[in-house]
Design a binder for these strands. Sequence first.
DNA 1: ATGTCCACCTGCTGGC
DNA 2: TGCCAGCAGGTGGACA
Length: 271
Amino acid sequence: MPELPEVETTVRGLASVLEGEQIARIETRRADLRRPFPPDLVQVMTGATVTGLGRRAKYGLIHVDRGQTLVFHLGMSGRWRIDPGELGAHDHLVIETGSGRCLALCDPRRFGSVDLVESEVLAAWPAFAALGPEPLGDGLTVAHLRTALAGRGASIKQVLLDQRIIAGLGNIYVCEALFRAGIDPRKAAGAVSAPALKRLVPAIREIIAEAIEAGGSTLRDYARPDGELGYFSKRFDVYDREGQACSRSHGPIARIVQGGRSTWFCPACQR
DNA sequence: ATGTCCACCTGCTGGC
DNA sequence: TGCCAGCAGGTGGACA
């Protein structure tokens, strides 16, 4: 699943196909993903011109000239296939452009979603209204984290997965950022020291920026929309590396479960 | 409010 | 070889 860097990579891939293009045809091939497709999706999008692409947190945005924005989320297993040729069982939404290009939203687990939102009030859309700052934006500061984490007894790992604190971090990049900042993922969020928060902010920015630069990560079922592989997965320090040697301390990477999800970290480096 | 658990769904991997 | 348990990038609802 796509975290922020994978969604950003996806959006850039889609932009190269959709920007300025007319949507000649759009087809839903089942009734729902996580939620039903919007009932007016086909009517609104057919014949519309794409005015721009965007991203907020892990959501991709396709703006059209009818004051509406198609908002998609890739869930755990979603990806867009560009000019797929033959459609498969998990290609649930298909878009054809005026110049004959084809896009298929493929999502085997169907944890993703597609919504239609009025572009003017996008920021007030319920799923967006509560989101925290973007990791690469001006809003992610030590002061913000200090306030947002104050008094929180849950582990820093779990709290950083909360999209209201920072928008767009997922399991991979939280693990990687905590490693880079040298913070024990089990530590209560409110007990993380000021110097540690000062390391955490640039650690998050760097990880996310490097991952976008590398074109996202490639795991079990993620690929860039153009079919090329992302290279960031080769650079993980801790994610999915249980038992392997830490690049810094050379001690073994540990795996624990927090909130039902795996956390990988180096017990020697992260305190 | 905060924290914890679990459901949603399919596919892959590793152990027996 | 085959089967089955366990696990996977996220979100959000139900509970204490």
